[in-house]
Structure formats: C-alpha cells, structure tokens
Amino acid sequence: MASSRSLTAESPLSGFSHTYAHTQLSEISNLVMLSVAVPRGGLEALNTELSAHFELSFPATGHSVINDKSPLDSSLSSVTLLGLQMDQCLLIADQKTNDNASHSLVAKINSALNTVAYLSDQSDNYAVLDIQGPSMVMAMERICSLNLSELDTNTVSRTLVEHLQVIVQKQSHDQVRLFSPRSSANSFLHAVTTSLENVTFDNAVPDTALPTNNPR
C-alpha cells in the first residue's frame, strides 16, 4: 500500500484514449519491459530458462513470440518477446491491472533470467500506443514506410515515424502496437492522432483529452 512518502507514477500520455470512426487509439501503460541481451555463447542457456519460466524461446529478428496463458505470474495476462536484433530482444509482460508499482515484477523477471542474460529495465523508456480498427493501415500509411498490410501478424520492426524512432509490432490484420521514446511522447501522439484525423471523418480529439503539456 502506498505511503505518504511514496512517489506517484505518471504515464507518458496520461492514459490517452479516443475512437476515430471505429478505430481505437489507446495508450498502453500496464507493461513491464526489459531488454534481454544474450551473452556470447549463451543462447542455449537462455532458451532453457525462457522455456522454463515463460514457455517461449528467443525470437528471430523481426518476429515476436507470445504466451498469453499467464506465464510466470498470475498478475500477467501475457508475455511477449520482440526480436529486435540478433542478440537482443525486448521482453514485455502485460499486467492484468495497471499497477504502476511494477518493480516487484521487474525483480521477479530479473531473478528468473539474470544468470543467463543481461537485463535492463525499459518499462519507462517507451510510450506505447495501440491502434485497432479498420483505419489502422490507412493511418499508418501516412507516417510509416513499412508495408503494414503485407506484414505477417507478430512481425516487429524498428523504423522511423515523423523523425521518431518507433518499434512497430503487428498484432493482427487491423491492430498494431507502437513503442516510441518516452520523452517525445507528445510528438509521437500528435503524429498518430493527426494521421487518424486525416484519414477518418470523425471529430478531432477534444483538447481536454490531451495531456496538459501537449504542444498542440
């Protein structure tokens, strides 16, 4: 239970959520994220522990693997590994509730893997947005050079969106999850909301729904 001394957490986009003509854009702020780097010669040992704790194996670059059967901890709805490069992936633990004090979970994952991998907490490194709906591909066409409509589900790619680094994870034919550095979260949100506004015929986001320091 939080004490009076405890620090209060804020998500990068203050829980932004809006629907654009049946396409939903939402901030996702209940993720625990750690980068997992493979020690030289240590892939087999890492895979053993990944399998034991998460029933997953280290993903190939450009692919993601997911276990949505509450692995490791009952507070988790899923664990995903995003294959970002040959020797590094991003482990994403999706918490069932939005528990901002997620350090105990970080510690749990650390103790599961720290003898076989180099781990670094990245839970606060990113602002995360989900776009789901019929206008997702059209909106992403305006800002992302990836051929999203042709990418397979569970593909992951690092790319640039409006001068921002973004990790794109395709979750289904009409759903994509985007990760972008936290410090430019407002610019990132602006890029995505502008795209959705430009391709749909819905009301623009009312100012009250935007984070207070949104440049717009």
Partner: peptide, 16 residues
C-alpha cells in the same frame, strides 16, 4: 511547433 519532435523531460509538467 511540429516542425520537429519535441522532447520533454519527466519533470516538465512540474517545471511548468
């Protein structure tokens, strides 16, 4: 304002 992205520190709101 949107010529290029803007990066804000985690204490930006507080500083404002």
């Amino acid at each position: 304002k949107h010529f290029r992205p803007t990066r804000l520190t985690p204490t930006h709101d507080w500083a404002t």
